[in-house]
Design a protein around this nucleic acid. Structure first.
Lengths: 241, 241
DNA sequence: TAGATTGTTAATCGATTAACAATC
DNA sequence: TAGATTGTTAATCGATTAACAATC
């Protein structure tokens, strides 16, 4: 409820969202609820649209966008219909306009300061990942508990001691934290993030995190995907029909 | 249908699965179909069980395992019931036994040689990721098109030119390939992998891959997860109730 | 036998998708 | 007007979960 306090009281103009939120809140009344499965596909459509914009394509049909993203076209139209009616019957969608509407819906028209904790191989890769910066995410802190990493430069940023966490979160108004530490450290990092005001956590550590209900957590597990592939691979060789 | 040819004709004993498959095929008749959503949770249960084994816990209830994994206990029991009846009413599950059964179901009791193509930051992180090795995945090739990387040592393996792909796949009987290249190179890499006999692809590149139906593809997109978090983060600040 | 916990049933919920009326 | 394509309906499919009989 009263969660984003530190994220909105930023002194240096990074503070976000609330003015827009108030406006949007007035105009779109019934708190449109977009199904989780649809939300998860919006970034996929967005990337395909970015590609079309770069190609100079001005208009596309749901069929074309569906092919480009590997999604069923009826599903795609239904997904888009949750956002509003941004297409034109008989014509299709204006690429640039739809791109903007999806970006706005996801929140990518905001500025999202992010901290990454744990600058091992993975943290290093994440810090350099261009897909973050290009989508409104701004890395404002790389932190690691290992003293030997302090002040080393990674992706143009000096690594800082983990104990600077609270200070950076407060100064920059950080709402989103990324955990790329070993499993045993993850819960402690999450606790400190939450205490400092972070309300969304992206967890790469192989650990289940306990956080208050008001805090969003998503988990990426590299080995789980590989295991799911192995399961299907094994099934293929078992096919004796 | 006739897909895994090169993966099974390996000359050096890496060839896998087929003997086991024949045996299993005889014993478990009706080609048990495990729902996709359940398959995706098996690795999560497996990890929790690994933790319990390490703690020396011998038995656990569905309730305990559910709490440890953040899953509803009824759902967990239903998931496990697809594998067989491995629990004891009134008692719970034998941790070591259940661990083995899940590992066997996923295929982690096999040896899975894997190649990684694209040794940038992410490929580097993947090569060093301990979660692969500890689960039966064995990295047998790190490949990159950039000549300046050739013969550099990463995770104890010399990086090899991309053109060695077919040779390594044939020699080692590789069925699973990991793509960690930039988006523009991903489809070409996938095509060459498939032509060389690979039947499962884990794709980290931000691109939609086109492969034959017989080839399994899973996609991990780091920025998509962050965008989904941003969506929910934005919704939190819009709550005007 | 009494207590505990599994494995399964069945109700519910949510997601997918073919089909088509609306409309450009 | 004719052709094209959206936005929506409704049927279907799959996943979740409370409840409980089976059974240790």
């Amino acid at each position: 409820m009263t969660s984003r306090t530190s994220a909105t009281s930023s002194p240096d103009g990074v503070a976000i969202a609330d003015a827009d939120a108030a406006r949007d809140g007035v105009e779109e009344s019934p708190v449109r609820h977009i199904p989780e499965a649809s939300v998860a596909r919006l970034p996929i459509y967005l990337r395909a649209l970015t590609g079309l914009v770069e190609q100079g394509t001005e208009t596309c049909s749901s069929e074309e966008l569906a092919t480009a993203t590997g999604v069923n076209s009826a599903k795609l139209r239904k997904d888009l219909s949750y956002l509003g009616s941004y297409g034109t019957r008989g014509v299709g969608y204006d690429v640039a306009y739809l791109h903007y509407q999806i970006a706005r819906e996801i929140g990518l028209t905001h500025d999202w300061p992010v901290v990454i904790v744990g600058i091992g191989n993975l943290g290093h890769a994440l810090a350099n990942y261009s897909g973050f910066r290009s989508r409104g995410f701004r890395i404002v802190g790389l932190l690691d508990a290992a003293e030997e990493l302090t002040d080393k430069e990674v992706a143009g940023l000096a690594v800082r001691p983990f104990d600077d966490l609270e200070k950076i979160i407060a100064e920059e108004g950080v709402a989103i934290g990324v955990i790329a530490t070993p499993a045993h450290a993850a819960q402690d990092v999450a606790d400190r993030m939450v205490a400092a005001g972070i309300t969304s956590v992206l967890n790469f550590a192989p650990a289940v995190l306990t956080v208050p209900d008001s805090v969003g957590v998503r988990k990426v597990d590299l080995s789980i995907e590989l295991q799911i592939l192995a399961y299907h691979e094994q099934r293929k060789s078992e096919e004796t029909s």
